[in-house]
Amino acid sequence: MAAKLLQSLGLAAALLAAPAAQAEDIKQQTVYTLSFSGIKIADAVFNTTVADGKYNINADIEAAGIGNLFTSIAVKVDADGLWKNGKPETREFQLIYRDGDYARDYAATFSNKRVTKSTIEPDPGPRADNWVEVKPKHLRNVIDPVTALLLPPSNNPCATTVSIFDGETRLELEMASAGSRPFSTKGFSGRAIGCAVRFKPVAGYERKDEDIEYLANSRELVVWFAYNEELNVFAPVMAHIPLKIGRLTIYASKFGLPR
């Protein structure tokens, strides 16, 4: 389950798109360091391109093994979409996930915030009795996990609920303000705003999974956002994700610089 969380939540720490009003093309890169209980396990590189009212994000995450907890996890992701009325709208999402010998490729097509097609390869086959099935009603008004944590500027960007579908799992992130703090890294120096996040699984997961229940019941999940002036968005710069086996921390070592 820790691997699944690295797949879905680690991807949430992304620098994303810009308003279509931008006349020039934009190419930026954000680099994150992922650590588990204080030990570095991965670097994540997110490249964002914005042009002609469209955005593309591609990312690579590679995690080194720590005993039996993580085994050379590798994640590649590609997301494409439109910027409509000041908000991102997903069109295509693909995620390639490798955990040792375990391999899964997820893909989803979106239209008007609805999932019109999704695939998992290889086919996972019949699910266990405790599997919560994804139904058509779960695939409305959703966004991919990479685009999910792009927050438009406002007096309280954290006052929102984000509905996510990653090709298999439907979940919601209910957010609320958690204050602000100084934050500096390569490409940014100023204040970051904190959003306390409630993790709410909806469908596409195993009921009574201990790790999911632990995260869903936690009050310690916090994501910190910094304002990117060029892109006119708040984007994640740090996150603390509580797991039953320890804490996953994501930290931006490079934030929104040209590539």
Score class of each variant (00 low, 15 high):
L5R: 06
S8F: 08
L11I: 08
A14S: 10
A14Y: 00
A14Q: 02
Q22P: 03
S35L: 11
I39S: 11
A44H: 14
V50A: 12
A51V: 11
D52G: 13
G53A: 09
Y55W: 15
Y55G: 13
I57L: 11
N58M: 11
D60W: 10
I66E: 07
A74Q: 07
V77K: 10
D78Q: 10
A79H: 06
K84V: 15
N85E: 14
P88C: 03
E89S: 15
R91W: 04
E92K: 13
Q94L: 07
R98L: 09
R98N: 10
A107C: 02
N112A: 11
V115N: 02
K117Y: 14
K117L: 13
E121V: 13
D123K: 14
A128P: 07
D129K: 14
W131R: 03
V132L: 10
V132R: 02
K137S: 13
L139K: 01
N141L: 11
L151F: 14
L151E: 03
P152L: 14
P152G: 06
P153H: 13
N156I: 05
N156D: 13
N156A: 05
S163F: 02
F165E: 00
M175G: 02
P182M: 07
T185M: 02
G187P: 01
S189V: 06
S189H: 07
I193L: 09
C195A: 09
V197R: 01
K200P: 01
K200W: 00
P201D: 03
V202P: 01
Y205H: 12
E206Y: 08
E210R: 15
E220F: 05
L221E: 03
V222Y: 06
E230W: 07
E230Q: 12
N232Y: 08
V237N: 08
I245M: 12
I245E: 15
L248P: 01
I250Q: 06
Y251P: 05
Y251D: 11
L257Q: 06
